[in-house]
């Protein structure tokens, strides 16, 4: 009886080489992605079921952190309320402002490069520096109140009054909508002229041009901004950390700031990990909702 013939795997150096070269090229990214993203991602998931206070062993405590987060810790509800309010204050208004400014900056007037640069400039300044600058601007005796004083209005103590603190941070966010504006501006410049001419032939005016041509054409860029801004605003931290430290009371206690405090001020890494995962799930849900809703208002050229 003849034994079955063993078939040697058909692997040759020539066939392997492109694979090896390919892996070698992406290995710097792969290694950093694995160790700096995947590993912490998994570790934080595991830690969220533990009590871990930086030293000693992490103790497995099952769903205790999640139970505390959802049912016992009222600061979680406070911080979510603050964060969602901030999203509502900044994302719709910020989008509207960036569209409006982009349209203005798309006009053929003298000195337009100067205006474009001016509106974009605040986006270039780093977060901490900008936050410090706005702290000065909104101080009780700062320039905003000085200007209000000229017309007989006594300005509030913007950052230290419960009613004004969060709107003040939102004001700062709106004044720095330059990055979104730039993307919209690029989209505006890509709108084909013949579509406007078609509207003119149909007897449409400026409003018709904007509503039936401009808006649909730039809607993918608006959608992109809404997604990115929502995610960014949900993760807001620097403004509150630098300008108000979450106060007065919990008026500006963003979820990200509360998470930071649990981790790096109270050293409750397990609980902070659970909070981080909840934030991830909330952002994921918001993004999915945004995508579902997008089909009703975002226009893509290739779609029916």
């Amino acid at each position: 009886m003849q034994s079955p013939r063993t078939v040697a795997p058909n692997i040759s150096w020539a066939r392997l080489r492109p694979h090896i070269v390919g892996w070698a090229f992406i290995s710097p990214w792969l290694v950093s992605f694995s160790f700096l993203m995947v590993y912490p991602f998994i570790a934080s998931f595991v830690l969220s079921f533990t009590r871990y206070q930086l030293i000693g062993e992490a103790q497995f405590i099952g769903f205790e952190n999640i139970q505390r987060m959802l049912f016992e810790d009222e600061r979680v509800a406070d911080s979510l309320r603050v964060t969602f309010t901030y999203v509502l204050l900044t994302v719709p208004a910020g989008t509207a402002i960036s569209v409006l400014v982009a349209i203005l900056l798309n006009q053929a007037v003298r000195g337009i490069p100067f205006f474009r640069t001016s509106f974009y400039m605040p986006s270039v300044i780093g977060g901490v520096g900008l936050a410090l600058l706005w702290t000065t601007i909104l101080a009780k005796n700062g320039p905003v109140n000085a200007a209000l004083g000229l017309v007989g209005i006594e300005g509030p103590n913007w950052l230290f009054e419960t009613a004004w603190a969060l709107p003040s941070l939102a004001l700062k966010a709106l004044a720095t909508a330059g990055a979104a504006m730039l993307i919209i501006l690029a989209a505006l410049q890509g709108v084909p002229q013949h579509l406007y001419e078609a509207v003119e032939l149909d007897g449409g005016g400026e409003w018709a041009k904007f509503w039936h041509v401009t808006l649909p054409q730039i809607s993918p860029a608006i959608f992109y901004n809404v997604i990115v801004t929502t995610i960014g605003v949900m993760q807001s931290f620097v403004e509150a950390f630098i300008m108000t430290n979450g106060g007065p009371g919990t008026a500006t206690l963003f979820y990200g700031l509360y998470l930071y405090r649990q981790a790096f001020e109270f050293y409750r890494m397990g609980y902070a990990s659970a909070l981080a995962w909840m934030m991830f799930l909330i952002i994921l849900a918001l993004t999915i909702i945004n995508f579902r809703v997008a089909r009703y208002w975002v226009y893509y050229e290739g779609e029916e």
Partner: peptide, 13 residues
């Protein structure tokens, strides 16, 4: 009060 200490106290110059 707690808020004016931070805001107003310094604002008075």
């Amino acid at each position: 009060n707690v808020d004016d200490y931070q805001g107003l106290g310094q604002a008075l110059g």
